[in-house]
Design a protein around this nucleic acid. Structure first.
Length: 672
RNA sequence: GGGCCUGUAGCUCAGUUGGAUAGAGCGCCUGGCUUCGAACCAGUAGGUCGGGGGUUCGAAUCCCUCCAGGCCCGCCA
């Protein structure tokens, strides 16, 4: 509702300015620093002052006098050097919240593709992968809440070097047949993804000690690509088993996907060939005849050095203004090889083909088979080379694509985008969003706690990068288990009477809440220096703090029921006058406002491309409620009218906070 | 050599895209549970917003420069 009024004011003011001053300015809406200043603040007169060459305060006064009446708005006031502050009609506002009036959306709904997780299927997921999945899944939930159709893709690189290295280790180091590897997968006493974690680290050490072993890698990669022999079969077994483990880990966090596009199908269905024809036709890639890249098809550096941006809004330029191109050295050093001199395509080439498919820009499509069904009924599909299910939904063809990939891949993402651009797909290039984020690193203290040996050099650093090759990192499932164990201790001490299964369910919700909130509270550009104690905390700015506020509010309603009282019929007992009277009390009004700002917060967070803002909003709302809860004892309220109103407030708060938590993928437990 | 990011309280981080008196959590200190259960609340202390210049009504935010740290720049993925 807050968003509805904000948009209404914005549009009315913009129209007024256009008509009265014959000029076009973007009307920025803010929340005033001080609540006493009202509900919205418009600094628009400051920018207007420049074009009109008049004092901002004078313009503000003139505008306040001339602005037409707006439904739901009680007053415009001039403040400071030329702010226009806006006050809502409190009675009407409360009434509309009760009646659950219109849901607003600032942008028109569209089909959006979000790609996230994308873990190499060769070992267990670690905390860095958790950041990706939580960020991606929260983005998906935010987009869906504002009415968009979102398709979630988790790209599986089942033919790459990382899988190959584990296959190499199984085949050449451990001398295991595919059947023996399959037996490991089936062994219930062994965690296959953990086994691979160690094996992969061992293999990396082996390569370092005996570089000649890299020939095994080449042989294995070739076998996997050709899909022939024992090496290929072991590859399929490893990748499929590890993918299933990853899906299980992510489901613990309530992260689901719609589609697993697999690299093996991109290869076998020759997506690249279609893209290659296009790229050659439009001159986006050319055959190099001289220099160090002789014999390669390259993308000339100038294509991504001069992106030729036009007609983009400044906001989009800023948000994705990460064009990182080397400018030093020889000109050909900056060209990007797309097809090697031996005729094989590089990773970026495949990525360009995949990105084109996401927008529906190449003729090719996958076949699709159901991969698994989630407990909530959602079906996860996987790509297939042939014999697809006719009942499969239409995948791909999005109008906007978010790739949730860490910031280290910025350069490659720029090349992919440049590919689209040089093919003439300007709009799609702009709507390809690299939703980048910084890495999760480990603090030296955390390494010490986990018994990880560090070099002298690393110990002096403020953080150490997680490395799969070194086997250095915190496994996602281990962290989740630790969180659940800790939460379970707390739940047991508070609710000894509760059955074990219920205790465990609550502890799990708290653990996941803590984890997801932890991964969301940092902005995308912040390196998370992972600290076990901080991550395990359930106090202060944490997920459990927010969950607890919801539980407290719900306890009020439950206790009312336990006392044999019934919830009043709010629709009959609360009208505009009642709201007007109760909301005259400032702290009631402020809490209600905050609780009604959910969509506004999501709208702004999406505009800023920063999910951390949702975490922050949820925390602030919880904080506001906790203060309110402490000051007003609802069930003992002697004034019947006031009590009715406060009960409604509690109910409204529960509903809104639950929705925000859901947007972050966090459950509101029954008790805590 | 180049590109991108970061530098804000003892620590970890926000800061509404240039706005009003720079905020929160943790930690420290003080106080509050027979209550809708304290995973909470109230309060104290803590700041040259890395340094310097500039732009203007107004700068933590934009520009220049210097310093410090991180990431990336392969016929690897």
């Amino acid at each position: 509702m807050f968003l509805v009024l904000a948009l209404r004011v914005r549009d009315a003011v913009a129209t007024h300015i256009r008509q009265r001053y014959a000029t076009e300015v973007s009307v920025v809406i803010e929340q005033p620093r001080q609540p006493e200043f009202g509900e919205l603040a418009l600094p628009v007169c400051f920018s207007l002052a420049k074009t009109l060459k008049r004092a901002p305060r004078q313009i503000a006064e003139e505008m306040v006098a001339e602005l037409p009446a707006i439904e739901g708005i009680a007053a415009f006031e001039v403040a400071g050097g030329g702010f226009i502050n806006v006050r809502f009609e409190r009675g009407a506002y409360g009434e509309s919240l009760l009646k659950q009036a219109a849901v607003a959306s600032a942008s028109s709904p569209q089909k959006i593709i979000v790609e996230h997780t994308n873990i190499n299927p060769n070992k267990a997921a670690h905390i860095g992968h958790l950041r990706n999945a939580v960020l991606g899944d929260t983005l998906v939930r935010m987009l869906r809440r504002l009415g968009n159709t979102v398709e979630v893709q988790n790209y599986i690189d089942n033919t790459g070097v990382q899988v190959a290295d584990v296959v190499v280790a199984f085949h050449f180091l451990e001398k295991k047949t595919p059947a023996e590897v399959q037996a490991l997968v089936n062994d219930p006493t062994l965690r296959f993804d953990y086994y691979c974690w160690d094996l992969y680290a061992r293999m990396s050490q082996h390569y370092a000690a005996e570089p000649a072993a890299k020939e095994w890698r080449a042989e294995t990669l070739h076998a996997i690509e050709a899909d022939e022999g024992d090496l290929a079969e072991t590859g399929r077994i490893v990748a499929d088993a590890v993918v299933k483990k990853h899906l299980g880990t992510m489901l613990r966090l309530d992260v689901e996907y719609d589609l697993l596009p697999r690299e093996s199908e991109i290869l076998h269905l020759r997506f690249w060939e279609s893209a290659f024809e296009l790229l050659k036709e439009r001159g986006a890639v050319v055959l190099e005849t001289k220099g160090k890249n002789a014999g390669c098809w390259i993308m000339p550096a100038h294509l991504f050095q001069e992106p030729g941006k036009k007609a983009t809004t400044p906001k989009e330029d800023l948000a994705e203004g990460e064009v990182g191109n080397p400018e030093a050295g020889n000109p050909e050093d900056q060209d990007k090889v797309i097809v090697r001199s031996n005729g094989t395509v590089t990773y970026v080439g495949k990525d360009i083909a995949y990105q084109l498919w996401k927008f529906g820009l190449i003729e090719k499509d996958f076949h699709y088979v159901p991969y698994r069904e989630y407990p909530d009924g959602r079906v996860l599909w996987a790509s297939a080379a042939s014999g697809g299910d006719a009942a499969a939904p239409a995948f791909g063809g999005g109008s906007k694509v978010y790739n949730v990939i860490d910031v280290r891949q910025s350069y490659l993402q720029d090349v992919v985008r440049a590919g689209l651009q040089s093919l003439g797909f300007e709009q799609q290039a702009r709507d390809s969003i690299h939703f980048s984020y910084e890495m999760v690193a480990l603090t030296p203290r955390c390494c010490a706690e986990l018994g990880i040996e560090l070099s002298e050099e690393d110990r002096k650093r403020s953080f150490v990068e997680v490395s799969g090759r070194k086997g250095l990192g915190v496994k996602a499932d281990d962290l989740i288990d630790m969180l659940i164990t800790k939460a379970l201790d707390e739940v047991r001490s508070r609710h000894a009477e509760t059955p074990e299964s219920a205790q465990r369910e609550i502890a799990t919700q708290i653990a996941i809440g803590a984890l997801r909130y932890f991964m969301l509270r940092f902005t995308r550009t912040t390196v998370i220096a992972f600290d076990l104690q901080e991550a395990l905390s359930f106090e202060g700015e944490t997920g459990p703090y927010v969950q607890y506020a919801a539980v407290r509010a719900r306890n009020i309603l439950r206790t009312l029921d336990d006392r044999g009282e019934t919830l009043p019929d709010f629709n009959k007992q609360l009208g505009p006058d009642a709201f007007e009277a109760q909301l005259a009390q400032e702290d009631f009004w402020q809490l209600l406002l905050e609780a009604s700002r959910g969509e506004w917060a999501i709208d702004r967070a999406l505009a800023a491309e920063e999910p951390a803002q949702i975490a922050r909003y949820a925390f602030q709302l919880a904080q506001a409620f906790n203060t309110f809860y402490h000051q007003h004892h609802i069930l003992n309220e002697p004034d019947a009218r006031k009590k009715t109103f406060l009960l409604w407030m509690a109910q409204f708060f529960v509903r809104e906070l639950t929705r925000v938590l859901d947007t972050m993928g966090i459950a509101a437990p029954k008790v805590m």
